[in-house]
Design a protein around this nucleic acid. Structure first.
Lengths: 206, 206
DNA sequence: ACCTGAACACCGTTCAAGT
DNA sequence: ACCTGAACACCGTTCAAGT
């Protein structure tokens, strides 16, 4: 039954998954500004209008990419670890997932702000935090705040990666003045620590 | 000497400030997606190409708008207040400034991520935090983390304002399920508290 | 000093029609 | 079920030329 259509395909024919796969490749190779519907269509060797059979619009396609980017398995952490260490690990894992694709943070950030998708990492963070004994609203607010920091930080980080690779630096900014490499990871961990420490010591509701 | 040019102007003639003023009006009235160079030119009754005498490109124009949006005077705070309350006040003031223009947070966020401008609020936050006795790097990192949270939170907040005004809600999301109005201010204050509490209790360097 | 006119090289999206 | 072909209504930017 399967495989009987491979010989008589009249033109290209793709699945929704094919489209998302190709989009993810273009994103990673050329960046978000170059991920246009027309360029994507050309890569798939179809007309731009063909894409609208698979996705109603570009925004929905980007939401699908965002979901894939954050769909990484959460990092394994010591079973005895408390909610603080688990939240740290979850945050670091999310950062890794965003860094795994060029402009990954931008894509997730924009669809998150748009209200579409990207709720998976929010829920994961909220659940991890809730294990600390916080009520649902506190956990949700803390997770949202932490997620905003993470998305902003990694977006910034990826923006710098591109600047550096293009050799573009703002006037008067020497390469040393810009934090790069491991410093970025340190700054990220520092920000996460600020959050969990604040939450841990908070007497708001626990 | 002044005023002798008003009668014999051959065509429209604008200053760089005129252009930024008009752009800010379009931004506030129609939102960032509708702030195009062509629409701006039309509002000023000039050709699109005329804008490029005043600004080298759109990105630079947006950076100018970002600078104006955050140029609000910092809120007055009790002279005896400590760095925690001052940081809270500075954060709330920045939120107000961003909320004062439609899509204000998006504009500032994008130019901040781009590396242009928006350094004024970062410096203000860093200085306020440094008054708590933290070293320069810690203050800078904490200010950056806080700023990322603020920009993400207010962007999200403004995105929701537009959704609500359009009557658009994601499937299955009831209006009650979405935090609105004063809840957003509460959630914002909660996030800021997480930060300053974490920093206050932090033994990293103080 | 500031603008016009015309062009270049693009966008996202719609829709009737084809296979 | 999936794509073509053609169009609509736009974009940002450049550059020679005008006043």
């Amino acid at each position: 039954m399967a495989g009987s259509e491979s010989a008589n395909s009249r033109y290209v024919r793709h699945s929704r998954d094919d489209v998302a796969d190709a989009a993810l490749r273009i994103l990673d190779e050329y960046g978000l500004p170059d991920l246009t519907m027309r360029r994507l269509a050309a890569a798939l060797e179809v007309q731009p209008s063909a894409l609208y059979w698979h996705f109603p619009n570009k925004q929905t396609l980007l939401a699908e990419l965002a979901d894939r980017i954050v769909a990484r398995p959460a990092p394994q952490v010591d079973a005895e670890a408390g909610w603080v260490d688990r939240t740290r690990a979850e945050s670091a894992g999310l950062r890794d997932a965003l860094l795994a694709y060029r402009d990954g943070a931008e894509v997730v950030s924009s669809t998150f702000a748009f209200g579409l998708g990207a709720s998976a990492p929010l829920n994961r963070l909220a659940e991890t935090i809730a294990a600390g004994g916080f009520d649902a609203e506190t956990s949700h607010r803390a997770a949202t705040a932490l997620l905003h920091f993470i998305l902003g930080h990694v977006s910034h980080e990826q923006q710098r990666l591109q600047f550096d690779s293009l050799g573009v630096l703002a006037d008067g900014v020497t390469p040393d003045a810009v934090e790069g490499g491991e410093n970025q990871a340190d700054a990220f961990a520092f920000g996460v620590t600020l959050f969990v420490t604040g939450l841990d010591r908070s007497t708001i509701s626990q």
